[in-house]
Amino acid sequence: MFDGALAHLSKLVHDTLRREIGFVINWGPPGHFERRPNVERTFKRITDDIFLRLPSTTGSDPKSGRADDAAGAAMHYRIRADDVEQLLDVVFAEHNGLPGQGNFYNSPLETLQYFLNGPSPRVMLRKLPFAGSTRARLLLRRELCTVRGGVKSGRKPYIQFENVLYTSPLLSTSVKLVNTELTIYVDDEDLRTVKAFTSNGYELGILTATRGWNLTKHSLATRKAIFQLVSRRILVLSQSADPVQVYLLHLAKHVEKSSKGGKGSLKDSTDLARVAKEADVTPTLASASSDGVPIDPAVESTERSHLRLVPPSQKRYKVTNR
């Protein structure tokens, strides 16, 4: 059972898992909470105990309970998503550990333990078989791409996915695969590589992105944002530059202008934090002194001069064979 909010954004996961695993999803009827009273009561309790008590709450709906300048309050009080998730974990632990009348004054964990390991267990726990990467691939997005290139065009075989070319030493020498379709498995959180298979099931292995797109880890949302700026001629990508690092510098400049009183948007700060977290890059404020020692971003200081992007560790750049 899932909450119906944002159900329109879950088509990819919903369809893939239903087709591969075969489970059933119950979204719940809109406007009829009485059909799932336990689930809806739990959602309401979580909302009342956490989200509606925050100074940055958006309320129960767009017309009720929204705080004045919720986004500004979140920045002023530095309400972080990680902190809210920790509060949510506390509420879950409290709900699962406290006894309730509906369970004959047993906690949900005690009730679950009784049904699984009690004197007369009523449930035999089923486990999904996990056969290594085969099961993991079922959770990835699957796409069909046509192999381009060939002897006539003078280009080694490649595929194109989301405006970026992918190839490998094996694919670049497989001229017979030109104009055929490959099935690729895509991890939307890391588009540096994809895994390819031929139509008859032969595994081609890992295909790596070209033109600098294989250097820094990035998600599908980041790539689309970069190409949106490229199409508007705001960003210009060279053949050797790292597109993600160029995008980070672009966001950093906008955030810096905003901190100095210029025109900036909250979206740039959010995108900078998101992309930096994906790429394992820490955007910090560097001191204007000659030693160049970075200052803690949480410390207010008038000596801040510019945003400095700390390069990520090389360990995160290594591509593993999934």
Rank of each mutant, 00 (worst) to 15 (best):
G201N: 02
T183V: 09
D242A: 04
R232E: 15
T282I: 12
I226T: 06
E203K: 04
H254W: 00
Y202Q: 08
I234T: 14
N200E: 14
E181N: 13
K257A: 15
H218S: 08
V246G: 01
A221Y: 02
V230F: 00
T222S: 14
E278C: 04
I206P: 00
L204W: 08
V246M: 05
E256C: 08
D268F: 11
G262R: 11
Y202I: 05
S265W: 06
D242E: 08
T270H: 08
V244E: 09
G262N: 11
E203T: 03
T284F: 01
V230S: 05
R233S: 15
S219V: 03
I226M: 07
A276P: 00
K253M: 07
K195G: 03
H254M: 07
T282A: 09
D271G: 00
T282S: 10
S269Y: 02
K260C: 05
A241G: 07
T270S: 11
N214P: 00
I206M: 15
R274N: 11
W213D: 11
F227D: 13
L237Q: 09
I184S: 08
R274P: 02
L220N: 01
N214K: 12
W213K: 07
V230E: 12
T183L: 07
K195H: 15
P243H: 04
L215D: 11
A225S: 15
A209W: 03
L251A: 03
K263H: 09
A252S: 15
Q228G: 15
A276T: 02
E278G: 06
G262K: 10
A225R: 13
L266M: 12
S258Y: 02
A196T: 11
G212V: 08
L191W: 08
R211T: 14
D242M: 01
K195L: 12
L177E: 12
A221F: 01
N214H: 14
E278T: 05
T193A: 13
S269C: 10
L220Q: 10
S199L: 05
S231M: 05
S259N: 14
K217A: 02
V194K: 02
T222W: 01
T284Q: 06
G264Q: 07
L215S: 10
D280F: 13
V255E: 05
A221P: 01
N214D: 15
R192W: 10
A225F: 02
D271W: 05
E181H: 09
G205H: 10
V246T: 14
V236T: 14
V186T: 08
